[in-house]
Design a protein around this nucleic acid. Sequence first.
DNA 1: AGGGGCATGTAAAGAGTTACATGATTCT
DNA 2: AGAATCATGTAACTCTTTACATGCCCCT
Lengths: 184, 184
Amino acid sequence: MRFVSTTLGHALLGLLVRQPLTGYDLAARMRHPIGYFWTARHSQIYPELQRLASDGLVVSEVIDGPGPRPTRRYRITASGRTALRAWVTSPIDLEPSRSEFLLRVYCLWLVDPAAGSRLVNDYRAKHAARLSEYEGEHANCLPEPASGTPGFASYATLRAGISYERHVVGYCDWLLEELSAPSD
Amino acid sequence: MRFVSTTLGHALLGLLVRQPLTGYDLAARMRHPIGYFWTARHSQIYPELQRLASDGLVVSEVIDGPGPRPTRRYRITASGRTALRAWVTSPIDLEPSRSEFLLRVYCLWLVDPAAGSRLVNDYRAKHAARLSEYEGEHANCLPEPASGTPGFASYATLRAGISYERHVVGYCDWLLEELSAPSD
DNA sequence: AGGGGCATGTAAAGAGTTACATGATTCT
DNA sequence: AGAATCATGTAACTCTTTACATGCCCCT
């Protein structure tokens, strides 16, 4: 059995196991919906597809399409499916989280409360907008898909996004209150 | 005014504006407490310190210490402090979030519910452990530091960690229930 | 005729991890 | 005597972003 070495490789297999797609289609799905928890540009995707193909985890066929180069539709192979399934339940470590926003919060004491509140408010607005975007999508996918289906897995990641954005908005609200009422 | 180009540079300035530190001390603080929202190894930190020094944002003095090379204590300069303050409230974009766990959730439909539950449970346990770690620290830093102090800024990032871990644990609980009660 | 979307690639640079390398002091 | 901690650096590699490059098809 062949192992996929990169997370991106698994992301692409996770899309291809649902349906065959071109590199262009994969790049579009890496923006939406996968982009909400993993991102990649087309310049990273095309070389990765070549690696997956040379490892026998995907195969491609040339189809009609525009442009100077042949258009390829990729399909997952049986061994790609096996590798993906093995990865899904393999041991997972705590992942390092990176937030430039929290790094700024750590330095908030350097600036006056009004400027600090502006920063937090802007950040809150962006996340509140994303939250309503997610909530709109959520309303669109009722009734809840049955567990064990691809639809349910997509729904589960959307629920994660909603829960995360609520946490961010709630946290910003707490922080804004603290900044506006310094001596409580 | 000089601009710091990397997020890591701002992270280091954010530590040095609180107190002078050696590269070794900075590396320790990049594991804890900064590591909960930004990480860096010493191999990334030492070159970055040299860049900050050559831009005049920090200065170093050689102090007594072990090892084959001189031990340096770094201190932020006035222009470093100015650059850091300007960065804190500069416009911030939505940051791409990366979660291999959610990528796996997107593929959960491929594996049987028992194996899926094991994955989610393991992930939940790791985050629940981190949550109680944070809650212990929270109990340690009462009463709440006054807004506008470095202590409050540290406290505010701890609150963010607690809120985040609660979101993760709550989400895992929801998902585990869905996986165990497939036809509700 | 021009702009936007479809479609695929490579090149160069920056960010981050892992491994290599040295050597003093302190604790067990 | 050996392990852990203090302390600083470089090298090699991987991952990610930004920029360069081409050219068809469809709509207005």
